[in-house]
Simulated assay, not measured.
Amino acid sequence: MNARPPVRRPRLFVSNVVSRRPGARRFHDAVTMLSNSLVQSASGSWDVTWAFAEDDGSARTLDRARDADAIILMGGEDISPDLYGVAPGYPGEGPHWRRADLAQIALARFAVADGVPLLGVCRGLQILAVALGGNLVEDVDVPGHRSATFLDDHRLARHDVLVEASSMLARGIPRREGGAGGPDPGGRLRLRVHSAHHQAVADPGPHLVVSATAPDGTVEGVEHPAAPVLGVQWHPEDPEADPAGLRALLGLLREGREGAIGMSGAGRARPVLV
């Protein structure tokens, strides 16, 4: 009689930038608030590893992520500008954590190469683009993407995004008649999001496609056409956002992992994801 494979919960590797930010308490508190919210939401159905790329470096980050069923790259500081070919000194530039940048770039490339589902959130989307040959707008010059009071009140900006109906991302949008997820006249799906960013993707590079934009043209979503890898510029983990949005994106990660398992070699005993 063949033994049934062990049943386990899927493993989610959540990569943050750094565990401590001396001299930047308000920013650290805001980033931690968002990470806490995501981990709390995911922990109901995932075993979550909460990691810090600056602390761990590239080798340890990759080693810790190798048995993950899915990966999330969280928000944080700007990426070191030389990594996408521009000079420092742009408007709004803050501190950089280069060790974290390199570790998360390596993590994004690993996910694409191995077919591990990955979601990039805000900076995480930008990491994904830079990792795969894209570049960034150093300072977004259109209003509405960030709140001047965010570090004080943790209230993010609100704006619409338009999602391509044929995209992987579109499958992760809760549909409501006359509301979020409803189509615009061009057939794209309209979604109200919460955001806090002063940079964005300028060119996603040769390996990603744009899946969502703001009405002003700012890139808000990218995805890989041949791997379960995507990024969103907004913060679905914001505690004030509709929790159905984050649940749906976590569902996409699970769907991607189950698809990857289904394409794996036959005859190998694999744990069942519950």
Rank of each mutant, 00 (worst) to 15 (best):
A113T: 00
P117S: 10
V137N: 13
L118K: 07
A157T: 12
L189M: 12
L132H: 07
D216Y: 02
P117F: 06
L119H: 08
A103V: 02
D216E: 02
C122P: 09
R155F: 07
G217L: 00
L128A: 04
G120V: 01
L107C: 02
I127H: 13
P206S: 10
V137L: 10
D153N: 14
G144Q: 11
L189Y: 07
R188G: 04
A165F: 11
L125K: 05
V116Q: 07
E177V: 11
A111Q: 08
P117I: 06
A214R: 08
P185R: 01
G181A: 02
V142C: 06
L151N: 13
P117E: 11
D101A: 02
S167N: 04
H207Q: 14
V193H: 03
P185L: 01
S211V: 11
R176E: 14
G124L: 01
G187W: 05
P117D: 10
D114I: 00
R158K: 15
L156V: 06
R109S: 00
R146G: 14
A214L: 06
G124I: 00
Q199W: 11
A108V: 03
L128S: 04
G186F: 10
V209M: 10
V201G: 07
L191M: 07
T218C: 12
A113M: 01
G178Y: 01
L169K: 02
L132E: 03
D184T: 11
D114P: 00
V121E: 13
H194W: 11
P206A: 12
F110H: 15
V116I: 15
F150E: 15
G134I: 08
D114S: 10
P206R: 11
A113K: 00
A111K: 05
H154M: 12
I105M: 08
L118D: 08
R109N: 03
G133L: 12
A103F: 01
G172W: 00
L118V: 04
T213H: 15
P215R: 04
H159A: 06
R176L: 09
E177L: 12
L128I: 05
V137S: 11
E138F: 08
P143C: 07
R171N: 03
S166W: 11
L125V: 08
G172V: 03
P206Y: 14
H207K: 13
R188S: 07
G186N: 11
R192Q: 13
G179Y: 03
R109F: 01
A170V: 04
V130Q: 04
L151P: 07
A131S: 12
R158F: 14
R171K: 07
E164K: 07
V112R: 00
G178H: 01
R190W: 04
R176S: 14
V112A: 03
A111H: 05
V112M: 00
V137E: 15
R99S: 14
D101I: 00
I127N: 13
H207I: 06
G182C: 08
L119W: 12
V137I: 15
D203E: 12
D139L: 07
P183M: 06
H197S: 05
C122E: 09
L119T: 08
G124D: 06
T218H: 09
L119Y: 04
A200Q: 06
E138V: 14
D141G: 05
N135A: 09
L191C: 01
G181L: 02
A165I: 10
V193Y: 01
G205K: 09
